[in-house]
Simulated scan of single mutants.
Amino acid sequence: MNNINREGFDLAYCVKGQGKRKILVIGSSVYYPRLFSENLYKHFQFYFLDHRGFVKSPRELKQEDYTLDKIVEDIEVARQFLKLENFIILGHSGHAFMASAYAKKYPQYIDKVILLNSAPTNSQERQQQSFSYFNETADTERKRQFEHDIAFLENDIRNDPERRFVHMCLRMGAHSFYDYTFDAADMWEGVYTNMQIIDYLWGVAFAERNLIHLLADVEKPVLVGLGRYDYLVAPVSLWDSLDGLDKNIKKVIFEKSGHNPMYEEPETFDRELISWINNK
C-alpha cells in the first residue's frame, strides 16, 4: 500500500490487475479490492484510492476541509501522481457522487464513467422512500432478519462509536444483500472510517445533489449498475427518467444482487462490465 499526501491527509492507494484499460475506484483502498473478482483483474488495471472519509484527520478539521469539491481536487491530484490519462472512473454507493462530480469537472481525462448502487440523491425524503419500499415489498423472512439484526445496532454504536458507519452497514445486511443472512464483517475488517467527514458527505453533500441532474452535464459514456434487492437505495425505478435522456447511458439491473453485484453476481457483473468497457 502506498500513500499520496494531500493537505496532510495520507490517501492510500493500491493497484491490482493488468491490461491497458485503467479503472480508478474511489473509496476505501482496503474495502473495495475485496469486492471485485480476480477475473476482472486479468482484464483491467484497477487503482483503488482512499478519500478523506477513510483516513485519519491530520488536525482539527473545519467543514471546508472535507467538501465534495475538496474530494474532487484530491482525485485530480492523485490522477496526476498516478499519471492516469483517458481512464475509467468508478464510484459505488455514495462514491457515485464523487465520480460524477469529477467527470463533470475534468472530462478531458475521462474515458467512461461507472456508477454502481446509488440512488440519485441521498436526501432524507429519498431514504425514507427506500425504507418504505422495503416495508412494502420485502418478504417476511427478510424483514424478520432485519428486525433481529438492527436490534443490536444501538449497543454496537455505544461500545464503538467511531465505527458507527461500519456497524450500520453490517446491521443493515437484510437491506444490502440478496442473501439477507450474509455476514459482511470480513469485508470491513481493518477499514478506518472518519465519521466527521462521512457524516457530512452522506448527510449533507450527497443529500443536496441529484445524480440524474449531474449526468446531464457529463458528456461521456456512463454505466449505471443497480441491484434488484438493494433496498438501501431502492427502488430501481428511481432511475427511470434516465431512459428518456438523449445520452450514452446504459442501465443494468442485476436481478440476484443487493448493494454489491460485483461480489454477489461476479460472473454476470464481469460479463456486463467487460462487454460495456470494450464496446467502443
Rank of each mutant, 00 (worst) to 15 (best):
N260F: 08
D74M: 03
Y180R: 09
L215T: 00
N155Y: 09
H148K: 15
S37R: 07
K70E: 10
D230P: 05
D217W: 02
L238Q: 11
I75E: 00
Y133T: 08
S118P: 06
Y32A: 04
Y200W: 13
G258E: 00
Y231L: 12
N117R: 03
A103T: 12
A138Y: 13
W202G: 05
A96Q: 01
L116A: 14
G19W: 08
N260D: 03
D160T: 05
E272R: 13
Y102M: 05
D243R: 08
E264L: 07
T268N: 12
N5I: 14
N2D: 07
G225Q: 06
Y13L: 08
D183Q: 05
V252W: 04
R6Q: 05
S132F: 02
D199M: 01
K83W: 06
L215R: 02
E189Y: 13
G203W: 06
K112H: 07
L201P: 02
A103M: 08
K83S: 09
N5S: 14
E7C: 00
E7K: 15
Q18F: 03
E219F: 13
H148M: 10
I274E: 09
F46L: 09
E60C: 01
S118L: 04
A207H: 05
D270I: 02
D183H: 06
P33F: 04
N2H: 10
L214R: 11
G225E: 11
H167T: 07
C14N: 15
F254R: 08
I249Q: 01
D179G: 04
D10F: 14
E38N: 15
Y31K: 10
I71A: 07
F81G: 00
P161H: 06
K56S: 13
E7L: 14
L211T: 10
L115V: 07
I198G: 04
N210A: 04
L40A: 10
L201C: 12
M168L: 15
S100W: 00
A207I: 11
L35P: 01
G225R: 01
E38K: 15
W239S: 01
D74A: 05
G244S: 12
K70H: 03
D139H: 14
Y231R: 05
L40T: 03
S132I: 06
L153W: 12
W188M: 10
N279D: 15
Y231W: 15
L61E: 15
P261R: 11
M168N: 11
R79L: 06
K280E: 15
S100A: 15
I198Y: 08
K280L: 11
